[in-house]
């Protein structure tokens, strides 16, 4: 069988891009692998040659500091994830569904947090809370400050899917007796949920692991990143590596599950092709 030049050119480029993707994954996951490996090592500064132990994992469950930090991080992650997803979903719908002459300006307002560095968000909310409002660091201001970035990312993610949405679908639902909220629940959300879920996930991760914003808003309340930051002075404790390893184990279990579900075609996660 003859292969035409053009066809093989396409194949060739495709494989080259696949290799680039593969290399990127290796690059991204090498440190993760290192973290997992080091969490089992006796000496985390000089982990080679290997000498394995579960000591770090035992310490995690014995020291209440890590438990507290994990719970605080989860609170901030979930709180800011939910807050940003709600705000962003409402805003995108409001902007796309109803024509407005201020649309472009409003787009810029909602995307503006992307143009402000985390460090600036952290520092400015610290300065604002402490000096203008007279508040000391608390978990609510940390959730709010983290959600600033989350809103922008969620807005971008949801926008990218919702621009393709046919709003006449809502018209149809409404003519057949669905009130606006019911419309959203029955028709809009089932179509756009992958992006809403993605938005929540991204804003959760950003807030969960955020050092700079949380650090300046929390004061003495520990989170996982701030404990990591604090322990840097004495060298990182292997316990943090152990927590990270467990988080990754959980995340990859979920991914594997997703893959199996997709493979068997039970769930499509919004993909509507063949």
């Amino acid at each position: 069988m003859t292969t035409y030049g053009a066809v093989s050119g396409v194949e060739y480029r495709k494989w080259l891009m696949a290799v680039a993707l593969g290399l990127l994954y290796i690059f991204l996951y090498a440190p993760i692998a290192y973290v997992i490996y080091a969490s089992f090592s006796e000496d985390i500064v000089w982990p080679f040659p290997p000498s394995l132990t579960l000591q770090a994992y035992a310490n995690v469950f014995n020291d209440s500091l890590y438990g507290d930090a994990l719970i605080n991080s989860l609170k901030i992650g979930v709180g800011s994830g939910v807050l940003s997803t709600l705000i962003a979903t409402a805003a995108v719908i409001g902007l796309l569904r109803y024509p407005s002459r201020y649309r472009t300006a409003l787009f810029i307002v909602f995307l503006s947090p992307l143009f402000v560095a985390e460090l600036l968000i952290g520092i400015s909310s610290l300065a604002f809370n402490a000096r203008i409002l007279g508040l000391s660091g608390n978990i609510f201001s940390a959730i709010a400050a983290n959600a600033v970035e989350g809103v922008a990312f969620s807005f971008l993610i949801i926008l990218s899917q919702l621009v393709r949405y046919d709003w006449q679908m809502d018209d149809a639902a409404m003519v057949f007796g669905a009130k606006p909220l019911r419309c959203f629940w029955e028709v809009t959300l089932p179509t756009i949920w992958p992006s809403v879920f993605g938005a929540f996930l991204i804003s959760f991760i950003l807030a969960f692991n955020n050092l700079e914003i949380s650090f300046y808003n929390l004061g003495a309340i520990p989170t996982l990143p701030s404990v990591a930051w604090g322990s840097l002075r004495f060298g990182l404790g292997p316990e943090l590596f152990a927590i990270a390893a467990m988080t990754n184990a959980l995340v990859f279990t979920i991914f594997a599950l997703m893959y199996v579900l997709m493979r068997t075609g039970i769930v499509k996660f919004g993909y509507r092709g063949t």
Partner: peptide, 18 residues
């Protein structure tokens, strides 16, 4: 509002809920 009118409608591009 439309949802109180008890009217049926058929649309050009069908608009079936996918």
């Amino acid at each position: 509002p439309p949802y109180r009118r008890k009217i049926g409608m058929v649309f050009q591009n069908f608009l079936l809920f996918p």
